[in-house]
Amino acid sequence: QLRPLYAELQKYGQTQDWDRALKTTRKILGISSNEKKATQSKIICLMQLDKFDEAYGTMTKNANDTADLFFERAYCEYRLNRIEDAYNTLKSIERDLSEREQELLAQVLFKLEKYNECVDYYRSLVKNNADEYQSTRQANFIAALATWK
């Protein structure tokens, strides 16, 4: 019963049709309320739709199913202007940070005016990446350097 709905959700995710994807997560959770993947997907849909308050509330209400969503939690906090919380969430990760976590941490550090550490992250991110955002990342690095000095 859930498989076709998950297939639909996957399709809407691929086409970035977040309104429809959100509706599909609600259908899944209406049938079975403790579907971890549907709960996590719902949060991401809400975030894509700029509903950060609701996304954050959904995380709080489903603490067990969302305990490993460090990036998403920190990004919600960042967008809700809870910058210290975002910093603490990222710093609570007990392993090496993924690239996206480092990218977010660099932005958080900039907002916290911790330019020294921010510049260090950008230096490493610029060096170790070759994706399509590299020139934008370089611009962030330069902006952080210029603001620091």
Binding site: L2, R3, Y6, A7, L9, Q10, G13, A21, K37, Q40, S41, I44, C45, M47, Q48, F71, E72, Y75, Y78, E99, R100, E103, L104, A106, Q107, F110, Y133, T136, R137, A139, N140, A143, A144, A146, T147
Partner: peptide, 21 residues
């Protein structure tokens, strides 16, 4: 103070659903 480009947002994707479909 300048505002940085938000590159983190580009990394926001659904979890893998391969085990559910």
């Amino acid at each position: 103070k300048p505002v940085l480009f938000d590159l983190a947002l580009n990394h926001l994707t659904l979890p893998s659903l391969d085990d559910k479909v």
